[in-house]
């Protein structure tokens, strides 16, 4: 049995994909966000601040147990944090910003980065910023996953909406049981 403080889901994905927003929208407490003003050109294209260590929030389960929600930093120089945060996690939520230059390459990158974790644990792909760019479409994501031999579900979400984030977690829980 996992200790209560080890029950966690991890949100990962590219800069500006909505990891901080997603955790904020569902966490019972104001999430601890380690955001700083960004100075990197690539980051500034998408947002003014960026997470440099991790985001952190939680929701309370029965018996006061907590399901912790961690968000990894989006900048690739902090990728090592991904491996630290996913250790002992139940599942991974990969958020992809559909308005970036090559969202499918981003997907590929995060699946590769977490390949070891995903051998034993489930993931769900949330595609954000569809209102800004509707290409690639969801079918393109499935085609890309198919090429890799992966079968994770893909859902279009608005990370600011609690209901949307709830959908992601709900499907991830289904994968924990039957995946």
């Amino acid at each position: 049995m996992k200790k209560p403080n080890e029950i966690k889901f991890v949100f990962t994905g590219s800069v500006g994909a909505g990891k901080t927003c997603a955790i904020a929208s569902i966490s019972e407490v104001d999430p601890v966000a380690t955001e700083v003003k960004s100075s990197e050109k690539e980051v500034l294209k998408h947002k003014q601040t960026t997470t440099v260590a991790m985001d952190y929030g939680y929701i309370t389960l029965e018996n006061s147990e907590r399901l912790y929600l961690y968000g990894t930093p989006g900048q690739r120089r902090f990728d090592f944090m991904c491996h630290i945060l996913t250790k002992g996690a139940l599942g991974l939520i990969i958020l992809i910003n559909n308005s970036t230059e090559d969202p499918l390459a981003e997907l590929d990158y995060y699946l590769n980065l977490n390949a070891a974790f995903l051998l034993e644990n489930p993931a769900i792909i949330g595609v954000t910023h569809f209102d800004i760019s509707d290409t690639p479409g969801i079918e393109d994501y499935y085609a890309a996953l198919d090429e890799r031999g992966d079968a994770w579900p893909v859902i279009r979400v608005d990370a600011r909406e609690k209901e949307d984030v709830n959908i992601l977690l709900h499907v991830l829980v289904a994968a924990l049981e039957h995946g």
């Binding site: 969801i138 079968a151 579900p153 859902i155 279009r156 959908i167 709900h170 829980v173 039957h178």
Partner: peptide, 23 residues
């Protein structure tokens, strides 16, 4: 052979069965 659009009407209620049937 593929995932249904899980945002469609009532589809979230079928998330578990969809996962089972996919695997």
């Amino acid at each position: 052979k593929g995932w249904p659009d899980l945002r469609l009407f009532k589809c979230l209620d079928y998330a578990k069965v969809a996962t089972f049937m996919k695997n």
